[in-house]
Structure formats: C-alpha cells, structure tokens
Design a protein around this nucleic acid. Sequence first.
DNA 1: GCTCTTATGCAACATGGTTGCATTTGACCC
DNA 2: GGGTCAAATGCAACCATGTTGCATAAGAGC
Lengths: 161, 161
Amino acid sequence: MVVDPARTYRYRAEERLRRTGARVTRPRIEVLAMLLAAPRALTHHEIERQVNRALGIDRVTIYRVLEWLTAHGLAHRISGDDRVWRFNAAEDERTHEHAHFKCNDCGEVICLDKAIAARSVPLPTGYRTQEIELTVKGLCADCVPARADRHRRQGPAQHRQ
Amino acid sequence: MVVDPARTYRYRAEERLRRTGARVTRPRIEVLAMLLAAPRALTHHEIERQVNRALGIDRVTIYRVLEWLTAHGLAHRISGDDRVWRFNAAEDERTHEHAHFKCNDCGEVICLDKAIAARSVPLPTGYRTQEIELTVKGLCADCVPARADRHRRQGPAQHRQ
DNA sequence: GCTCTTATGCAACATGGTTGCATTTGACCC
DNA sequence: GGGTCAAATGCAACCATGTTGCATAAGAGC
C-alpha cells in the first residue's frame, strides 16, 4: 500500500494538535507537519517559502504558529549565532536537552538530544542553574568534503534561511 | 598612590592595541578599555550609551570596532537567544572555551571559561567538530532572591541592552 | 446552522545590525 | 614639525528578522 508521505505527516500533526484541546487550523497543521517531516531544524524562512507559496499563509501567521507550537510543547526553538531561530518538532512532547550541532559552513542545525548527559557545571556563589545548552559547531557531512575546494574559489557558502 | 581606574584600563587597552601593529585610535581604545573594565559581557547598547554620550563616537564605528576587536582576538562575541551580541575582552589573547552563564531574568552574561573541559561529543558519521559551546542558563546572584517577589507583582525584569 | 471565541491577514512598526561613500586621522617618512 | 596615503570614522540610507494593532474569517460547541 502506497501512502503520500506529506499526508501522513499532516495526519500526525493533526492528531498532536487535537490532543492540546486547542483549535486545529490549517496553518498549524501545515507548519507542524513540515517540522515533523524535516530531518533538521527549519527556519521561519524555509517554512514560509513552502507554506506561503503553496497555501498563501501569511508570514505573520507562521511566526505566531511557531510561537504557539513552542509554547505548547509541540516544537522547540533553537537560537544560533546568526540571529535566526530554527524550529524542531518536539520528539516526544517532553522538554529535550538542548544539545545541537550547527554546521559552520551551510548553517544546518540538527538535534543531538540523546547521549548528552547534562552534567552540573560549577557557578559563582549565589548563582542557580536552570538549563544547560550545548552546541557543537563544525562541518556537516555535506560540507566536510566540499569545503576546501569551494573556499579556494569563492569563499564560504550562504547559509540556508 | 591613587590611580584613576578608567585611565588604567585605557592604558592597558592601548598597549594591547599597539601589539597588533594596527592603528591605535580613540574609539578602539575606549571600547576595549570598557570591555577590560567590565565584570561581564557587554552589549553594543551598553557600550554605545557610555562611549557615544561621553565622546560622540558613532554607533556604526562601535559596531565596526567590536567586529575588528573580535577578528583580532582582543575580544570575543557571545550570541544569546535574545538576538543581541555581547562582547568580552579576551583574557589572554588566545581563544577561550566559550562556556558562559546567562541569567534568565536580567540577561546578564558572564564567562565561565575555566573548569569546563571541552569533552568530545558523538556526532553522526561524516560530521566534524570544530568548537563546542556551552551555555548554562539560570538565575544570577542578584536575581535569585529578587525573583519570586517581583514575579508576583509585575512579571520578569527587562533585560539589559 | 448560530454564536462566540480564537486565529488569521494585512499594514505598519521596532530592533539590531550593515553598506556605501565622502571626510578625517594615525603613522611613517623626511 | 609638516607631507603623504592607506585605513578608520561619521553619516545616511538600507536590510533582515521579528512584533503589534486591528478588522475580518473561521473552528467548535450547541
């Protein structure tokens, strides 16, 4: 039996939305489905390009949907050093460990959640830890081979947004 | 013997600038002196408020000076989740470990460099680590006691910028 | 299908940072 | 001390990312 993959993600998205008790709307379904389908964290831009073009959903709505999904634990937001937020579907509706990898060349961000035990870090007296965020930066599998080459000719790639 | 502390920092700043071999200018001296004097990372805003008001140095120049200091290893840039860059004087002109504490209440950022051994983190096949960035978030010594209290009355504080 | 709340779309705005270009200035040389 | 010239500065205009206010549309319970 052949299934349209996008449809499957939409269905899963709808289900999750329904569980929150809030309204299940087209923009929420589409954005969450896109996050569920993505193998890495997506920027507002990437989502807008697809969802706005296909369905004419407004960019402000997308911002608001992303904020709402984050607030309701269906997605989480990763802030990098390029001043662009990236979003993931929350794997299992509990908070995750905020461990990420970011490619210094193409800007790709992926989650590393597992494996990273958030150990305690010594702080000055009186300070209190609430969360620990670990970001590994480097080169992703696509950029490791491409890099030396590309740099010789034209400098680093534009980051995906 | 009594010494004007600001003058001392300016002197140290000048010395470091001179060692780079590049031009030693007023904006560079002032900005670097301010970073050297600060016990925590400063935002462009904080620097601008002081340096622009006192000396009329342009905000664009401050941006460029900060960029230049960073590129020359005299300062480093910390990017938080509020889309604001913060700057530290580089302690010893070698790269540091990028371990920071950020207060979730007032936004203060301090360096934790020591103590945090950058251990290796397992990545997917083909990925390569270049740097590891560790940010601990929580409450600073000033905000731990103030918080419960303030929250009851008026919500969290504005971050410093 | 009616009603009421909530979400959406649109336009205008805010913030943080960048670029282009004419003018000024630090540093080297005499 | 003064001349020279590349490099730094100041200014204005710009850009990217994200926000706000408000009128309209559309879920969901009945």
